[in-house]
Design a binder for these strands. Sequence first.
DNA 1: TAGATTGTTAATCGATTAACAATC
DNA 2: TAGATTGTTAATCGATTAACAATC
Lengths: 223, 223
Amino acid sequence: MEKKKYISMAVIKRLPKYHRYLRELLRNDVDRISSKELSEKIGFTASQIRQDLNNFGDFGQQGYGYNVRELYKQIGIILGLTKDYNTIIIGAGNLGQAIANYSYFKSIGFKLKAIFDRNPKLVGLKISDVEVKDTDNLEEFLKNNDIDVGIICVPKEHAQGISEVLTSNGVDGIWNFAPIDLKVPKNVIVENVNLSESLLTLSCRMNDNLMGNRRKVNAIDEI
Amino acid sequence: MEKKKYISMAVIKRLPKYHRYLRELLRNDVDRISSKELSEKIGFTASQIRQDLNNFGDFGQQGYGYNVRELYKQIGIILGLTKDYNTIIIGAGNLGQAIANYSYFKSIGFKLKAIFDRNPKLVGLKISDVEVKDTDNLEEFLKNNDIDVGIICVPKEHAQGISEVLTSNGVDGIWNFAPIDLKVPKNVIVENVNLSESLLTLSCRMNDNLMGNRRKVNAIDEI
DNA sequence: TAGATTGTTAATCGATTAACAATC
DNA sequence: TAGATTGTTAATCGATTAACAATC
C-alpha cells in the first residue's frame, strides 16, 4: 500500500517563510512553538499552519506543539538544503555581479562554479573569487562540468538561447532574471524573478489604493 | 446606483504579463486578437482571459476579439503607467546599483531622485546620473521632497528602521528587497522581491522533481 | 488527571473553467 | 445572414478556515 500526497505550489511557496521564521526562533533559543503562537508571528492562520506541516508527516505533538529545532531541520530537508548545487551565472552585468556577491546563496548550498559574459572587458575579471569566462565557452564548460543550476542574467533577447544551451547540457534548474517566459523541457524547473512584473504590480496596487479603495475599482460611476 | 468590483490579487498579478504579451503583439503589428489566440501565446485559458479583462470594463467585441492597441493602453492605465512616481533607493550596494542602472524602471515612470548609503566610500559617487547621499540625510531629504516610492536595498537588520523613516515621511509605496516582512501602516503598499525565498523555492521544486514525482511526495513508503 | 494542542474531517470561500446566449 | 467571439452565468475545482475528536 502506498500513500502519496501532492504538495501544492501554494504550500511550497510558503515553506521558505516557515524556514525563515523558525531560524529566527532558534536564534532566540525558543525550543517549542504552537501553531497558534507561530500564527501570530508569521501571519498565516493556525489552521493553515497545521494543514501545511501535515503534508510532510507528523512533526507536532498534541498538547505540546512543535519542536522548533526539529521542524526547522525537517523543512530544511524538504527545501533541499542538504544538497549542493553546482551553479553558474550567465551575464556578469550589474545584476549578475550582485548575485555572485550574494553570500546567502552560497550558504544554502549553491556553489558558484563560473560566470559567463560576452563582453571582452569583463572576461578574465574575478567576481567573488570566480573568474568571468567568455560565453563562447559555455557549451564546452557544461560538457566538462556537472552543472545543476544556471542563473540567467542576460538581456531578454539572449535568454531563450542561453536556456537551450543549458538544458541540452544537463542543467535541470534555472533561476531566470530575464523578463521573459522561457520554454524548457518539462523536467527542467524554472524559477523566475521578474523585476518588471514586480514593479508593475507595485504601481498597480499603489494606483488601486490611491483610488481610495484598496483592491476595489469603480466599474461604473455613481449615478 | 453604484457598481464596484474587487480586483483580486490573482488578477493583479497577471496584468503585467498581459501587458508584456500585448506589447510584443503591437511590436509585431498585430491589430486584433481573440481570447483563444492570446491563450495559446500566454498560457492562460481563454475563459480566464475573458474573465480577467471583464473586471475592468468591456474591451472586447463579440465576433472580433480585442483591439491590441486599445487593450494595451487600457491595461497600462490600470497598471498606473500614466503616472510618475518620485523614487529613491536606500542602499547603494551591488543590488541598489543594479536597480539604479535598470532602465526599464525609468521607462515606466519611476523617476530616481536620490540614492542613499551609510558607507562614506559610496557617498558622493554618481550612479546612473544620481548622486549617492548619506543615509543620515534621508529624513531631511524626505521632508523637502515629495517622494512616492522607496526602494529598500539595505541589509535586513536596517530594513524595518528605514521603512519607518520612509512611511512617516509620506512615502506610500515600498519596493522591498530585504528578506524580511516589513511592518507598515495599512495605507502603505509593500511589494517584496525576496531572492532568498525565490532560491529556496527553486531548490525545493528541484528536489521534489528529482524524487521522480513532480510535486508529489512519498509520505509512506510502499509496503 | 486536566489542559493544551495537534491531526484531520467537514464547511466555506474564492478562483478557474465550462457553457452558451447575446451580438458584432 | 452565417460565423466568430465576447460577456456572463453556472459548475467545478482547489485552497483556506472552522471544528473537534484524539492524544500527549
